[in-house]
Amino acid sequence: MLTSKCMKGVNIGYPLKIKAVDLKESEVDFNPDFISRIIPKLDWTVLISAANSIGKNENLPENLLPEYEKNTEFLKRVHHVLLEIDVVNGELICPESGRKFPINNGIPNMILNEDEV
């Protein structure tokens, strides 16, 4: 979840900073294949700093492990950070403009006013 939210920022600056007011942790079925496939699509450094910024690093390493797809324990931790932690309420903050995008009920609102386009 964090990833897609970070990825949203690319129009106006990347990565967005996350300010989490409410965090929710829930249990989602673990799908190792999906996690393995999604990892190469992520900006690992951004994921780590995003996880750090909300205090949910889960001991993920700064650099992606080699042969991570065989490391179930590692994949489980990535799974937890990606899918099981949800910023329910908070803000995404553009690193350049400081523009804040609200997150309500887990839904980031990226709509800009007409004068901001």
Partner: peptide, 8 residues
């Protein structure tokens, strides 16, 4: 496993 994003 659903995320909704409010955007254009």
């Amino acid at each position: 496993n659903v995320d909704v994003i409010c955007c254009d």
